[in-house]
Amino acid sequence: MRALIVYCHPRETSFTAAVRDVVLEKLHAAGAEVRLTDLYARGFDPRLTAHDLEIYEDEAANQLALRQDCADLKWCDTLIFVYPTWWYGLPAMLKGWLDRVMVPGLAFLMPKGPGETIGPGLTHITRLGVFTTCGASWWLTRLVGAPGRRTLLRGVGLLCAKGKRTAFAAHYLMDSSTPESRTKHLAKVARQMDKLIGRLPARATATA
C-alpha cells in the first residue's frame, strides 16, 4: 500500500493537524509506505499562470514545474486529502494543487474527437479518502453542494479505479465544537481509515 496524503492547513496546532495525525497513525500501523505533502509548510504556489495554461495540454511539458508532485501521484495507490472547508469550498492552496498537478496525460486523458469527454488517468489509485472540517452544519453544507464530496470524492474519484474504496469524514459545526465532539470525530476518522485500508494480510496484522 502506497499512500499519498495531501495536507492543507496553515496552523500546525489546528484540529485538522490532529486529523492528519490519526490518518498517519493508521497508515503506519498498516505497514503502508507514506508520502505526505504539506502545502502550507512547503510554500506551495497555487496560481495557475498564463504559461501554465499555454503548456497545459502539452504532455511533454505540463509536469515539469511540479515533478515531485506528479511523481507522487503516479506512485501512490491510495490518495487522501486532509483539509478545512472554507466558504463551502476547498482552500485556495488545495484547489491550486488540483489545478496545477491534475494535468492532462496524468490525472485524465484528453478527448480524442468532437463530442467526446475526458478519460480517467488515475486508474492505479484504488483507495480515496477525504477528511475535512466545516464551520456550517451538515444540512447547510449539503444544501450548498457538499464541496468535499462533489469535487474530491466524485470529481477526482471518477478519474480513479472503478470499484475503489472510499472514506469520508467531516466535523460539522466546527466553530462551535467541543472537546467531546472533537474526540468523537477523531474516533470516526479512525474507523473510516480502517474501512479505507481494509483487511490486512496476516503478516501485516501481526506486526501492526
Rank of each mutant, 00 (worst) to 15 (best):
C160V: 00
R150S: 13
P104A: 05
M102A: 11
M174P: 10
L122S: 00
L90R: 03
P111M: 08
L94S: 02
F168L: 11
P114C: 12
R149A: 09
G155S: 06
H124V: 00
P84K: 06
F108S: 05
Y172H: 15
W138N: 11
M110G: 00
G163S: 04
W97C: 03
I118M: 14
G148V: 04
L159M: 14
V156L: 10
T132Q: 04
G155M: 05
G157E: 09
M93L: 12
V156H: 03
P84W: 06
E116A: 14
M110E: 07
T151W: 12
V156E: 04
A161H: 04
K164L: 10
G145V: 00
G121W: 01
A170V: 13
I118P: 08
T178S: 14
L159D: 01
Y88D: 09
A92S: 15
Y88T: 12
G163W: 00
G129P: 02
H185M: 08
L128H: 02
T85N: 15
R100E: 08
S181I: 07
L173I: 06
P179F: 07
V144R: 15
T166D: 01
G135Q: 08
A167G: 05
D175K: 12
P104L: 03
H124Q: 02
G129R: 02
C134F: 11
R149I: 08
G115T: 08
S177L: 08
V101I: 15
A107C: 10
P111L: 09
L94H: 01
Y83A: 03
G119N: 06
R149E: 12
K184H: 14
M174F: 15
A169Y: 13
G115S: 08
E180G: 11
R127T: 04
A107Y: 07
L173S: 15
G115E: 06
V130Q: 12
L158A: 13
Y88K: 06
L152W: 00
L94G: 03
A146P: 02
W87S: 06
R142M: 11
P111Q: 06
C160S: 00
L94D: 08
A170T: 15
L106Q: 05
M93R: 10
T141N: 15
Y83M: 03
